[in-house]
C-alpha cells in the first residue's frame, strides 16, 4: 500500500517559489490521511541550502549539473525514477510553467493518472478527495484521487505558504540523478525582466486595475485614486497585454506575487491566474459590477458598483480629508 507523498519543489534561480511551501502544506494534510511521509524532491545543482526551511519529513536532493536549469525532460526522467523507487501514493507538482508540463509528460510516459488544478484535498475514510478549480475559477470539481499512484498539480489558494515552512531543517538525502537518455532540450540563456519603475512586491497598498477599466485613458482614474491614498497601481494581464501598463506592474501567474497590506481591485474578475499572485495579501477589497465575480470569494470586502461611478467619489473624499 502506497502511503508517501512526493512533493516536487519548484525553484527558479536560487529561490524556492511560494507554491512549493503551499504544496508541502497540502502534502502534510494528505500524508495524515494516508499515514505516510512527506518527501520533498529538490532537483538542481549546488542548491542544497534551499532545503533548509521545507516542512517535509525528508528531502531527496538530486544533485546534477544537468539539473541546474529546468527542462521538462530531465525532470520527467528523474521523477520517473524516483516514483519507481519510492512508490508514493501521490506526487504533488505546481500547476505552473514547471510542474504542469512535467506532470503531463509523466502521466503519458509512465501511465499514471493525473489530476490538475487542485485547490485543496480532504481525507474521507481512507480515500482522499481533491477539489480542483476549473473554468477560470467559476467552477469547482471534486472527486477521488485515483489509486494507487496519482500525479497532482496544485494551484495556490487552498493552503498558506507558512504551513509548509519549518524552522528545523529536514533530513536531506542527497542522491544521484539517473542516467539521462535522449535529452533534446538545452537552455541557452535567461532573459531578464524589464527593470520596472516600482517594485510592486514590496508596496503596502496596491490598486489593481483589470479589463473592467475598458480603455487606456481610464487608467487615469486609478492613478488619481492611488495618488490620493498613497498607493501604487498594478494590473491584471489583459491590461498589461494591451500595453497600458508595463510588465513590472503585472500581478499573477505570469507576473509578480504580491503581498501588500491592502489589495484593492477595480474591475478584476478574479481568475485563478491572477489570484494566485495575491494570495499573500492581508486584505483584499474588490470593486466589481458583477456580484458573481470569483474575486468576491477571496476578498474580505466587496463592493458591487461601477468603478466609474464609485472611484471618482472615493478619490474626491480622500483628497478632501
Amino acid at each position: 500500500m502506497n502511503k508517501d507523498i512526493l512533493v516536487v519543489i519548484e525553484h527558479i534561480r536560487g529561490e524556492v517559489a511560494d507554491i512549493s511551501y503551499m504544496m508541502i502544506a497540502a502534502a502534510r494534510q494528505l500524508a495524515e490521511t494516508t499515514e505516510g511521509e512527506v518527501l520533498a524532491v529538490l532537483m538542481g545543482s549546488g542548491i542544497e541550502n534551499l532545503a533548509g526551511n521545507l516542512a517535509a519529513d525528508k528531502v531527496i536532493y538530486l544533485e546534477d549539473p544537468q539539473l541546474a536549469n529546468f527542462t521538462s525532460d530531465t525532470y520527467q526522467q528523474s521523477l520517473e525514477n524516483l516514483i519507481r523507487e519510492n512508490n508514493p501514493r501521490a506526487v504533488v507538482l505546481g500547476h505552473t510553467s514547471i510542474g504542469m508540463e512535467v506532470a503531463s509528460l509523466l502521466s503519458a510516459k509512465s501511465d499514471l493518472p493525473l489530476v490538475s488544478s487542485c485547490l485543496s484535498f480532504s481525507g474521507e475514510n481512507g480515500s482522499v478527495k481533491f477539489t480542483s478549480q476549473l473554468y477560470g475559477g467559476k467552477i469547482l470539481a471534486e472527486g477521488l484521487i485515483p489509486e494507487p499512484i496519482a500525479l497532482l498539480t496544485m494551484v495556490p489558494g487552498g493552503y498558506k505558504p507558512e504551513d509548509g515552512q519549518s524552522s528545523t531543517p529536514p533530513l536531506v538525502i542527497t542522491a544521484a540523478a539517473p542516467q539521462f537518455a535522449d535529452l533534446e532540450i538545452s537552455v541557452k540563456q535567461y532573459i531578464e525582466p524589464e527593470t520596472g519603475d516600482v517594485d510592486i512586491t514590496s508596496e503596502p497598498l496596491l490598486i489593481a486595475v483589470g479589463r473592467g477599466i475598458q480603455l487606456e485613458d481610464n487608467i487615469e482614474i486609478a492613478e488619481e485614486l492611488a495618488e490620493a491614498i498613497g498607493g501604487v497601481v498594478c494590473a491584471s494581464r489583459p491590461v498589461v497585454d494591451q500595453g497600458w501598463l508595463p510588465t513590472s506592474r503585472l500581478v499573477g501567474k505570469s507576473g509578480y506575487q504580491v503581498k501588500p497590506k491592502v489589495y484593492l481591485t477595480l474591475g478584476i474578475s478574479g481568475a485563478p491566474e491572477h489570484t494566485e499572485g495575491i494570495a499573500g495579501s492581508e486584505t483584499i477589497i474588490a470593486i466589481n459590477t458583477d456580484p458573481a465575480a470569483p474575486i468576491f470569494n477571496i476578498a474580505k470586502y466587496g463592493v458591487v458598483e461601477d468603478i466609474f461611478d464609485l472611484v471618482p467619489v472615493l478619490t474626491e473624499k480622500l483628497e478632501e480629508s
Binding site: L114, G137, I139, E142, G143, P146, F296, N297
Partner: peptide
C-alpha cells in the same frame, strides 16, 4: 479516458463566501 480522474461533484463556489459586501 484512463489517466484522468472521475468527477463526483461539480459546483459553483459559494458566491460572496468571504467578502463582506458594502452597499
Amino acid at each position: 479516458l484512463a489517466g484522468g480522474p472521475t468527477i463526483d461533484r461539480m459546483y459553483q463556489p459559494e458566491v460572496s463566501e468571504g467578502a463582506t459586501i458594502i452597499d
